[in-house]
Design a protein around this nucleic acid. Structure first.
Length: 235
DNA sequence: AAAGATCCCAACCGCCAGTGA
DNA sequence: GTCACTGGCGGTTGGGATCTT
């Protein structure tokens, strides 16, 4: 099979819509699979990054508040460059965003320190610009044949989906981290219990919503509930 | 108004850990 | 045990936007 060269660089609006549509059906997992199904000719990594840093509906678009800035500084002094860890404490902010913020922040600080050697300078101030684009409702414009083809491979075990409990790894490791971070003793048993109840509910919601909107039984019947979504809920 | 400097952010890269075969 | 694959993370960079001179 002749493979087109993988696309790189800035995402187009069309690509965004396509990715949003696919992620909506398949959940935020198996990025390699999502990349194939979507027909975007991007890597799974690239898709994940785009989703996590830009398309995720929970993202905040406005500039950082002074409270958030303060929290970043505080957590960084505690944890260092553990950006993803810091980001989890700031709902709606991504590790990339915080990383970028910190770079600017430290650079400014360094400059100020430099200036402080000579004439006195004013306290640090920050400026931000926020991207103007926003999430829009996805269009079902992915070639069905594409999806069916990949999905058949999945079903026949060539590329098995890992949606069962045992393989929701990030969820379990996240649980451990929560324990570490908060010291609340949130046991894995508790976490799984909540996941179970939550995922049951989400499964029925997803089926209802998906079928209503698209009149499609293929996705609705084939897909397990996106339990990993819950990960964001208990952050 | 234009040119240069600086800022900011999206996206890529390389590495590593977890998982399944 | 080990090997290949996948996803997550932190570091880095290219380039557009904004500011300054």
């Amino acid at each position: 099979m002749v493979q087109e060269e993988t696309r790189k660089g800035p995402w187009t609006e069309h690509e965004d819509l396509q990715l949003m549509h696919v992620v909506r059906y398949f959940g935020e997992r198996r990025w390699d699979f999502i990349a194939k199904v979507s027909g975007l000719n991007r890597t799974g990594k690239s898709c994940r990054l785009r989703w996590v840093n830009y398309l995720h509906p929970g993202l905040k678009r406005e500039r950082m508040t002074p409270q958030e800035e303060h929290l970043v500084i505080e957590l960084h002094s505690k944890w260092g460059n553990r950006w993803s860890r810091i980001a989890r404490k700031l709902p709606g902010r991504t590790d990339n965003e915080i990383k970028n913020y910190w770079r600017t922040h430290t650079r400014k600080k360094a400059q100020e320190r430099k200036q402080a050697m000579s004439p006195p300078s004013s306290p640090s101030s920050f400026s931000f610009s926020s991207p103007s684009s926003n999430c829009q409702s996805p269009l079902p414009n992915i070639p069905v044949a594409n999806v069916v083809d990949v999905w058949q491979k999945v079903e026949t075990g060539k590329s098995k989906m890992n949606c069962d409990k045992g393989s929701c790894v990030s969820l379990t490791t996240r649980g451990k981290e929560i324990q570490e971070e908060s010291g609340t003793g949130y046991s894995m048993e508790q976490i799984w219990k909540e996941i179970d109840s939550k995922s049951d509910q989400m499964a029925s919601d997803a089926v209802d919503e998906g079928c209503k909107e698209n009149g499609c039984s293929f996705f609705c019947l084939s897909m397990p509930s996106p339990v990993w979504d819950y990960r964001y809920d208990f952050l």
